[in-house]
Design a protein around this nucleic acid. Structure first.
Lengths: 357, 357
DNA sequence: TTACAGTATAGGAACGTTCCTATTAGTGAA
DNA sequence: TTCACTAATAGGAACGTTCCTATACTGTAA
């Protein structure tokens, strides 16, 4: 394909014997043009194989009909779930999406933000960043003040359009479920790239354990499966081994599940396991995972809606859209081992009874 | 953010007291400009907070430095693996990527192709389409003849740049592995949106079974987990139940694994299971999945390289890059049950012996 | 002094649209 | 016939770059 476009709107106009404007109006099916003229133009378009150049259009319009999506970790299934929602909703509004995987690298995040200034996309949906606090980071603040459209999913920033699970207490719901089953020693695997990232889920855990006077057992780790496995191993090594483990997301629950199996323990007979996100995979694991649904694709869809409204009216007050969260009890949680005694736990349980290899 | 850009290259030129060209040259760090002048310009850029407008640049340059990526199924982990590779390699060459999830919808695929003509992206990487045959579809053919840059991953089309696993016989390798373990009744779950889609893998199965005079047992199904589960159920219902199941990809192996567990069977004691792709998840499943690695992220990376070379030289002959495939034997495959007799198999095995719930 | 390279910079055309401002043709009323 | 008014279309400016060409400047040689 040559650098220069072979057939432009001028060629069409000439061929159809009309002005530029008439072609432009025909393209957007305006009723300022007589339908007779329109079909003449359309015939010319067809015959010449004319296709509008988006760069030119974008430049002139001052808008690119594209949404940037910043993903912190391309390996975590939950983010794809969100992206799927974004993609779907964006398409319905005739917007494209540009993906930006940052791996929580601050430089890549700044590059992403820059895309907004470069008019690479009209708005940006960002999921989580390396900077995490109640205060909106200055770079983002500056953009917002300039009128940029930014929607965040699961941030705690102030004065930003955002998507939030509702109730935030879906976390406590999960804790309550474990508590009702009889669990009193509940470990938490907090595997995120930045410690404050999952603060809501952590807070739910802390708040619940404090209120019910349960021991707190938090293992911090990175966001990868090996990280999660190491953290789980540490939890299982504890003399007062937890009877239930909660992971900060379903992705790491996979790590926990694998680790527990490698140790020859059974879920939920020996230990219960639960996560957050309800990624599509979780129901197909064996055992199927008990988890908290936070509305994956819906978060993406709502983020797009929020963004488009913001683009329409840059002056509107910031909005928070709450997505209902719900507990899905499946096979991975059950009552703690009846006669469990931390001082008497079998060091090497017989794998034959449980895992099949 | 207003429709008009607040500060343009003109403002910078004025502020720095230089011409437009000088600013433009400074931006690309050309050595045609005295370094003294450069720093003057850079100061002006800094002070005014100037950011170049990509649409204008794209229009003028006739190139958008963006690669379109067409994903057939956003839920299949393997494609994300590829996307991760594409994303990474593209970034290194300062290219962005635009994602297009088609769900194998023909209309959406055509839209994707159209993006090429609209100059939305300079080139397109496509993974699989609803049209699948040895012949390149006419729409694609037309684009290629016009000089469009298109790279395919895993297609069988002629005269297209493409990424291919090598040896194609990685499929036979897997079959050989099962055969060596003693399996003689090997079922195949072919869950793809279009029947011809995984023709290579299917052929490997057919060829091997024919050569060794083994019964062929293929279950066709759709590409989703429930589809895969249904297909697996059908295989397991067979009076002459296979002693090993191969799924067309690891994604559906998850479905098979779940189904086998639900039937109370053990992997690999009762039945062996293997897949293709070596998605990152597969090693963390329990049991860890035996699979054929086809170089996930590498396929993406190589596709980008191929695309960039094509863009540099539209006239070069079409290339095929072969990515080495390799068998990864893990826990999900083992010898068939020793005393297995299809007429005597237990209808309802005791789940206690195997799966933990 | 003039001519001549060679370098550094300036200025304007072009990219292909969209949008604004005419202009034309057609109609009806004065 | 003139004027006002509307409907339909034409034409050109503008969007913000990049790239090409022209010019100004410097130093050297005749």
């Amino acid at each position: 394909m040559s650098k220069r476009q072979s057939v432009t709107i001028r060629d069409v106009a000439q061929k159809a014997g009309v002005g530029l404007n008439t072609v432009s109006l025909t393209l957007k099916d305006s009723d300022l043009v007589r339908s007779e003229t329109k079909s003449k133009v359309k015939a010319a378009i067809e015959e010449l194989g004319y296709v509008p150049n988006v760069s030119a259009r974008n430049l002139r319009r001052g808008t690119v009909r594209t949404i940037g999506v910043m993903i912190p970790d391309i390996h975590n299934f939950h983010y794809w779930d969100i992206v799927a929602g974004v993609e779907d909703e964006a398409r319905h509004h005739d917007y494209g999406i540009v993906l930006s995987n940052t791996n929580l690298n601050p430089q890549l995040e700044l590059d992403s933000l820059r895309g907004l200034l470069e008019r690479r996309y009209d708005g940006l949906i960002l999921m989580a960043t390396h900077t995490h606090s109640k205060e909106t980071p200055t770079e983002v603040r500056k953009l917002l003040d300039q009128g940029s459209a930014i929607v965040t999913i699961g941030s705690t920033w102030r004065e930003v359009d955002k998507i939030e699970p509702y109730p935030l207490e879906a976390g406590p719901l999960l804790m309550q479920h474990l508590y009702n089953l009889g669990h009193r020693r509940i470990g938490f695997v907090l595997g995120v790239a930045h410690q404050d990232l999952a603060s809501g889920r952590l807070e739910a855990y802390c708040e619940f354990t404090a209120r019910h006077n349960l021991p707190q057992r938090i293992e911090y780790c990175g966001p990868t499966i090996p990280d999660g496995m190491a953290a789980t191993h540490r939890l299982l090594d504890d003399p007062a081994r937890p009877t239930a483990i909660v992971t900060v997301n379903d992705y790491l629950a996979v790590a926990a599940m694998r680790t527990i199996a490698l140790r020859g323990l059974c879920i939920p007979a020996d230990i219960s396991l639960a996560g957050f996100d309800n990624i599509p995979l979780s129901q197909y694991l064996t055992p199927a995972l008990t988890t908290v649904d936070v509305g994956g694709p819906n978060r993406g869809r709502e983020a797009v809606r929020l963004l488009l409204e913001r683009l329409k009216d840059p002056k509107r007050p910031t909005q928070i859209v709450k997505i209902p969260a719900s507990l899905h009890v499946r096979e991975s949680t059950g009552p703690p081992p009846a006669a469990f005694d931390s001082r008497m736990q079998p060091e090497v349980p017989d794998p034959k009874n449980c895992n099949s290899f």
